[in-house]
Design a protein around this nucleic acid. Structure first.
Lengths: 339, 339
DNA sequence: CTGAAAGCGCTTACAG
DNA sequence: CTGAAAGCGCTTACAG
């Protein structure tokens, strides 16, 4: 276990001041008018020895850790793990590392996590906030730390935000269903007040109203397991025999709902057409394949990271907020009628 | 943006030495025989002010960062994102944070990531290694850093390891299929030399041999997208009309394979029985539901973390290696015959 | 029990 | 161009 090289060792071995080495390593050789020859010599030595500056010391001294906190509802969810993957690529390209945390939608846990991450001095935050952590978010902002919310926002607090145009997502889904002659269109959603869920509901309601159709909404409790969800959906279908189309507000609701439709002995799409909100790998290979309102995951990640990076690099003032609303894509597959 | 409190500020305000404050904060008050009254006073003050020690400074001084690197093939994969979720819970309970990185199975990228994480002085590593990073793993070990590999290992290097009993996973799957009267059992696997894939193949071959059945293996190139995989599987099915059962070596191979079986106009399980290696949420709600050799994800995460933590806390010597082989669970669902 | 001091490994004004 | 020095905010022997 060879002792790790420090900037001091390098300075000593090369008989130069460690400040000189530091400047060279940080690309300030020109600026500090250090001779090209010396610069070369130092860089070569560093290269040979495989020296890597201790980031802890650097961070303590500069106040920057080059770490970003990704605080999501649950890292194992399809949506979040894919966002995590895309963000990672962008972060690494720019010299940042990502620490992830799952809130499981518990504000208490989110508070604790933010507090822990603050003690580690991460440079910026990307967060899907549970309701109730407004004070902590505000505190981050007050202390000059960049915070970008995504997927859902906190109505009381102005922040940077990247989200889907959920309203038009369901609106356009309804429009399509009406256009393919569905008359009785239900929305199956979660019993949740998160902004993205409310927007999906509102888009649905608005489109139905436009077409003078009666809304029909099933709210599934958030905590339910798949089995319970299926049962509730089956009951819902039985109670509404005139149903001829369903929009599911999340991809897992759709999966359980389709099982329910199968169990009820109905055919997709001839008896009931189905559109899922939020795409999923398996929708493509399901039988029938499932139409979906897709969130462009890479685009969302790209926008999220851009907003954060601009603030981290002081290209944008902290007070100047960006809201990016990404347009979803309605992907038509086998679970809806051809038009 | 109020200035952050430091241990110096606290010492000054309370008119005590900062070493005293440090001892108290680190629970060494008793050991250092600091009066209970003073201890109380300091803790109360700290509590009131909401002081959080700067972890960077602490890390620089102690050499411990309380951070763990989770280096996986791809964070958005079902298996890895679920392992990540379970590990997170364990890590946080023990005061650790996790930085994740995706190697995408590229040794060059893995090397770069390890180098970057070393500069950040993470305390320990949990890794699914791509072939070719043996030297880097060895270097970590030589420098006394705990490393636990999982899912696959590097044959040349003795390390801590947590993996599935892949051999018996496919072996038992074949046994079951034979027992439910399948005669012509194929294995669809990836064109990969990773240890876990080889073990799955070997278990399959051994079980077939025992029953004097002829093996039939399709190797799908690793890089293929879903569509290509489906095409290859369809062709494979057509080429082998006597096929009556298939074991898919990964969950995504199973999903594309099932699509292929559907497209070939065959019925599951009456024409072809199907077992997938590695369970997936959607298998349960698929129609028919899909039998699977399930990896106990929480158990794997638990073992992984325990091994790592024991080393981090010096409960186990670095040289003493653990290998934990976890037994898979064969979950029978609708894609296989009842027995 | 307490205080002064050195050290972790960097950065960065400041003076030459 | 270079060197000595202070500072980031902790920990921890060491001496009283």
């Amino acid at each position: 276990m060879s002792k790790k090289l420090s900037i001091n060792d390098i300075a000593n071995e090369l008989h130069v001041a460690k400040s000189t080495v530091s400047f060279i390593l940080n690309g300030k050789a020109k600026e500090k008018r250090i001779s090209e020859e010396l610069t070369e010599r130092v860089l070569k030595f560093v290269e040979e020895k495989g020296y890597r500056p201790n980031q802890l010391a650097k961070s303590l001294s500069t106040g920057k850790t080059k770490m970003i906190c990704l605080l999501v509802e649950k890292i194992s969810d399809y949506f979040f793990s894919h966002i995590a993957f895309h963000l990672e690529a962008l972060a690494y390209k720019n010299g940042y590392k990502i620490i992830y945390c799952s809130t499981e939608n518990d504000p208490e846990k989110a508070r604790e996590l933010i507090s822990l991450l603050r003690a580690r001095h991460v440079d910026g935050y990307i967060i899907t906030p549970p309701a109730g952590i407004e004070p902590e978010i505000q505190a981050l902002l007050n202390d000059g730390l960049p915070v970008v919310l995504f997927d859902r926002y906190l109505p009381g607090i102005p922040t940077d935000y990247v989200g889907l145009d959920n309203y038009n997502g369901t609106y356009e889904a309804v429009e399509f269903l009406v256009g393919s002659s569905s008359k009785r269109i239900a929305l199956v959603t979660l019993n949740s007040d998160q902004t993205q869920m409310l927007e999906r509901r509102d888009g649905y309601l608005a489109a139905l109203k436009k077409h003078k159709l009666k809304p029909l909404i099933l709210k599934v409790p958030f905590e339910n397991n798949m089995e319970t969800m299926v049962k509730q959906s089956v009951q819902f279908i039985k109670d509404n025999p005139d149903l001829d189309a369903v929009i599911f507000a999340t991809n897992y609701l759709a999966l359980s709902g389709i099982k329910a439709i199968n169990e009820a002995g109905l055919n997709i799409p001839s008896d009931i057409a189905v559109i899922a909100f939020d795409d999923h790998d398996v929708f493509n290979i399901y039988n029938p394949s499932i139409s979906a309102v897709a969130q462009p995951l890479d685009e969302m990640a790209k926008q999220l990271f851009k907003i954060l990076l601009d603030k981290l690099e002081n290209k944008v003032r902290l007070k100047d907020l960006s809201k990016v609303i990404i347009h979803p894509e309605l992907i038509l597959r086998g679970s809806t009628h051809k038009v």
